[in-house]
Design a protein around this nucleic acid. Structure first.
Length: 374
RNA sequence: GCGGAAUUGGUGAAGUGGUUAACACGCCGGAUUGUGGCUCCGGUAUGCAUGGGUUCGAUCCCCAUAUUUCGCC
């Protein structure tokens, strides 16, 4: 069964849409946020905790699982779901992003066949190709597989990005040709940096290959400004079919979720909620809260009074600060639970706002509050 | 009681007779967007036990005092 996008609703003045994705593990509403579970685990959280924050899809990473424990072992276990005992849908990233950053000499290591790079674990020389990436993802048996793309920084030159877009198209075609898991959807990826014509070209040509969904890649990976990122979305969306999922890769700042949805994005994933959690930060409606700050020493109130997450229902900021400053692992876990729930709750509110045609007003009031403490 | 050694920020400590007292930890901030998980970037001693002295100048030399520590009786 493939992921499918149904039922669209356009709001006045925005491209925001409500949708549903049907999977073997249930039906999920969009817009949605996917927590990242790179190595077959959303760092620190059990499956029960994932359920409690109401996460649907989670993201796992082809590159990392290929190296350890290896896709054959996961296949033997009965696939990724059985292996990690997660009974929700899983999207696997192709490994393109990791491999690109691991390729030392971009010109020499990134070739038509694929990407040469060294394992970050033992330094051994490896080659990842579009075919290999798809084959691994087939074996992992995720619900959505991603095409293997080249993911250059937005700051790359026009010439480089142009060639990169063309190569990504050839790689997408090669990957699709070997895709052999009938239960698994396959998405294409739009590249092209901040250039209007490249985004248009990349989107149109990728759509011609007919994927189950489309993602916008190459954003939020190079210190680009928010405006540039929003532009990249606007340059890509018009050429993507209305009845297919649109997935913005790697984006997860609260305001970016809202701005993305306004521009027509359905799905997001991001390491931010779990990463900043491990470094002692929490999302709140008033901005990010740094639990390292001394001002929380004697604050015996929860992170957010009106948050329904396990952390907010049970623990105070003073306690969380104590866990973070003493580097107790529970601190990162509790903040991860809160941060993921925060973003998922945000998508719930966004969906509500779309239903009532008040998304732009929601954005403005969110921004007013969020900035007030920054 | 006698003799020796030591005394530098919150901590462990480097160091020099002469502009901004190294480094580490801690502390205080900040960063982090398809995760090469325990990371990165800033800030943090108006003062070198106390009191005298030598010197153009002392944290660094001398004397005394205090404290700590080791050895001997």
């Amino acid at each position: 069964m493939k992921a499918m996008y149904e039922k669209i609703k356009d709001e006045k003045n925005t491209k925001a849409r409500l949708g549903k994705i049907h999977t073997n593990y249930g039906t999920f509403d969009t817009p949605m946020f996917m927590p990242v579970g790179t190595r077959a685990t959303v760092k620190g959280l059990t499956k029960e905790e994932l359920k409690e924050v109401k996460s649907g899809f989670i993201l796992a990473n082809t590159y990392h699982l290929w190296l350890r424990p290896g896709s054959k072992i996961i296949e033997k276990a009965g696939g990724l779901h059985a292996f990690m005992n997660y009974d929700g849908p899983i999207l696997t990233d192709s490994g393109g992003y990791q491999v690109f950053s691991l390729a030392k000499n971009k010109e020499k290591d990134i070739v038509e066949e694929g990407v040469h790079f060294k394992s970050h674990i033992d330094g051994s020389a490896l080659l990842l190709t579009p075919e290999k990436s798809i084959q691994i993802q087939n074996e992992l048996d995720s619900d959505i597989a991603m095409s293997f793309d080249e993911c250059p920084p937005a700051s790359a030159s026009y010439e480089y990005l142009k060639q990169s877009v063309e190569r990504t198209l050839r790689w997408a075609k090669r990957g699709k040709a070997v895709h052999s898991n009938p239960k698994q959807a396959l998405f294409g990826i739009v590249q092209g940096g901040a250039y209007k014509d490249l985004r248009k070209f990349s989107a149109e040509e990728t759509v011609k290959l007919d994927f189950d969904g489309y993602s916008i890649g190459g954003v939020a990976n190079d210190g680009e400004s928010k405006e540039e990122m929003y532009q990249a979305i606007e340059y890509s969306i018009p050429y993507l079919p209305e009845d297919k999922v649109r997935y913005l890769m790697g984006v997860g700042e609260p305001i970016d979720l809202i701005e993305g949805v306004i521009r027509g994005v359905d799905i997001f994933d991001c390491v931010l909620p779990t990463r900043i959690a491990r470094h002692g930060h929490a999302f709140t409606k008033h901005g990010r809260c740094n639990l390292h700050n001394a001002k929380w020493k004697e604050d015996f109130t929860p992170l957010e009074e009106d948050c329904d997450c396990y952390t907010c229902k049970n623990y105070t900021k003073a306690y969380l600060r104590h866990l973070i400053t003493t580097k107790e692992t529970l601190g990162g876990r509790l903040l991860s639970i809160h941060n993921i729930r925060f973003l998922i709750r945000l998508t719930e509110e966004i969906r509500e706002a779309i239903k009532t045609d008040t998304l732009l007003a929601y954005r403005d009031s969110f921004l007013a509050k969020y900035k007030s403490q920054k």
